[in-house]
Simulated scan of single mutants.
Amino acid sequence: MGTTQLETVPEPKYWHLRTVLSEALDSEFTVGEVLPNERELAARFGVARATLRQALEQLELEGRLHRRRGVGTTVAPPRVGVEVGPDGPAWPDASDDTWQPVDSDLSTPPAAVSTALALPRGIAVHTVRRSRVSHGHPVAAELLYVPESSVPGLHLPDAPSGPARARAVLRELQHLDLVAQNRSVELGSARADDAKQLDRLPGAPVLVVTTHFTTPTRLAALSVATYRADTCRLTFGATGGVEIEEGAA
């Protein structure tokens, strides 16, 4: 590996190094490949290790790198596309390979969810938990809130918890006539439980995608999916022709 000298530029040195490193990731490395150690990288680019660390931290924040103790710094997989557009309405599918059912139970939802579902405070609903993984890394965690009145024919398995219960609720939803599926997206901070599932620190930036599932008579279910902001991109429109990839090189 040769030595690459950085040209003199008015922007911060670490930021220029971040750009050079990003180009190297695209041309010289593959997803999952371990980068050389800090000493070798600093020598290659002729910078102090403190400058190198700033650039690596920035690329990690942008989702280009994964840095793990005992493993090193590896090239992260491409961002996961999150479709937010006028696609036809569809219930979450129990056989969808994209999302893995984790669990389901009857529990009291947050007050805002109860209000949206027009339920009195304190009324329990079926809370289905699903997870989404890409290239072996967790990228999203979902909570799907389903009132008991939306699944009157539900027959739960004997198991008190687990994926089978989640799939049973999802299958029963398919019997409802879904007429609209409205999504909204906002930037948020990972709560403690979300952070644990997504392998992030509490407070890390996340994308919160809220989906309202509406039948001809009412809002029948509500989903809150929390995506890692450093691993996802948003696509708008039926063809996904417009993409937002903040921080992605």
Rank of each mutant, 00 (worst) to 15 (best):
H66K: 05
R67D: 03
R67G: 02
V75C: 09
A76G: 03
V84A: 11
A90R: 15
A90N: 06
D96I: 08
D96W: 00
T98H: 13
T98E: 10
W99Q: 04
Q100I: 13
P101E: 00
S104V: 09
S107P: 05
S107Q: 11
S107L: 12
T108D: 04
P110R: 01
A111G: 04
S114P: 14
L117I: 12
L119T: 04
P120A: 01
A124R: 14
S131E: 14
R132N: 13
R132V: 02
R132Y: 08
P138I: 08
A141C: 09
L144D: 01
L144R: 05
P147H: 02
E148T: 14
S150P: 09
P152N: 13
L156T: 10
S161D: 15
P163K: 05
P163V: 04
P163T: 03
A164C: 11
A164V: 13
R165L: 02
R167P: 01
A168R: 02
L170S: 05
R171Y: 02
E172D: 08
L173A: 00
L173C: 03
Q174Y: 00
Q174D: 06
H175T: 11
D177K: 15
Q181F: 13
N182Q: 09
L187W: 15
G188T: 02
S189A: 15
S189N: 15
A190C: 12
A195S: 10
A195H: 01
Q197T: 13
R200E: 13
R200W: 09
P202L: 04
P205Q: 08
L207S: 02
T210L: 01
